[in-house]
């Protein structure tokens, strides 16, 4: 990474091995938004404005069911909250970055580039031209993501609704949920939220989603406290 130019291309090259993983996700996001009944232009605009796969899928599923705007925004906030942790972890790498560019870099921040940055570079010895490197990685990702969503949107308008491509939305979430269930408390949270979501479906304004999520978070925290108490007072209890 001698010059900004070489750092940029270094970033582009480092991104290449990950492309096959993003393309199907983008295609599905595009096609599922059409299958869920979204306007093609709005689907594409959403992808450019948000640039966040899981949050896009959650938002379009709710928009298609005519959920109120406030619920959609709240859901997007909750799905994206983890990015605040990424933002904190990445901040030391951008200390010298000009202010306006910080906002651009924040917009381009994803799970993937967070992992790349924090595992490959030492935050106490930030290399020169890291900005150009970051721009190479995220710029490549942005272009590939938008192109695959656009192809998905176009293909989605050709695919008949009988194919139920919107079913891909819960399937994507299904493949994301199991890696998140690291402990027994996480399983308790997930099961409680799932059961609550089934019973809260009749709640007005799609509030069921929020109610179910809060139920899950509370049950997870309670399960954790309970297991800590149990382990502390009576180790190895079988009850």
């Amino acid at each position: 990474m001698q010059t900004a130019r070489s750092a940029f291309f270094h970033g582009l090259r480092d991104q290449v091995p990950f492309i096959p993983g993003f393309v199907p996700f983008g295609l599905i996001t595009g096609a599922a938004s059409i299958s869920a009944g979204m306007d093609p232009w709005l689907s594409m605009a959403m992808s450019v404005i948000m640039f966040a796969g899981a949050a896009q899928l959650a938002a379009l599923s709710l928009l298609a069911q005519h959920a109120p705007g406030g619920i959609v925004v709240l859901t997007v906030l909750v799905v994206n909250l983890r990015m605040m942790m990424y933002s904190a972890a990445c901040a030391p790498y951008f200390r010298q970055t000009p202010r306006l560019r910080k906002w651009l870099f924040a917009y381009l921040l994803t799970d993937h580039v967070f992992a790349m940055l924090t595992t490959r570079f030492d935050k106490h010895h930030v290399p020169a031209h890291l900005d150009a490197y970051y721009f190479g990685v995220t710029g490549a990702m942005w272009c590939i993501w938008q192109a695959s969503v656009a192809i998905g949107v176009f293909a989605g308008t050709l695919i008949p609704t009988q194919w139920s491509l919107d079913f891909a939305i819960p399937l994507v979430f299904l493949s994301l949920v199991f890696p998140a269930l690291r402990t027994r408390s996480h399983w308790c949270a997930a099961l409680a939220a799932g059961v609550a979501a089934a019973f809260c479906i009749a709640l007005p304004l799609k509030l069921g989603l929020v109610a179910a999520a809060i139920t899950g978070i509370v049950v997870g925290a309670l399960a954790e406290r309970w297991s800590v108490v149990r382990a502390g007072t009576n180790p190895g209890a079988q009850t």
């Binding site: 901040a91 819960p170 949920v177 939220a193 089934a198 989603l209 999520a213």
Partner: peptide, 30 residues
């Protein structure tokens, strides 16, 4: 610089993914 992630956020974020994803999945499936 110097701003840190507040403890309440770290604590509450722990179960967010585990709770939100099933809450999104279940109505779409059922």
């Amino acid at each position: 610089p110097g701003a840190e992630v507040p403890a309440w956020l770290v604590g509450s974020l722990k179960y967010v993914a585990a709770a939100v994803l099933p809450a999104l999945i279940v109505p779409d499936v059922l």
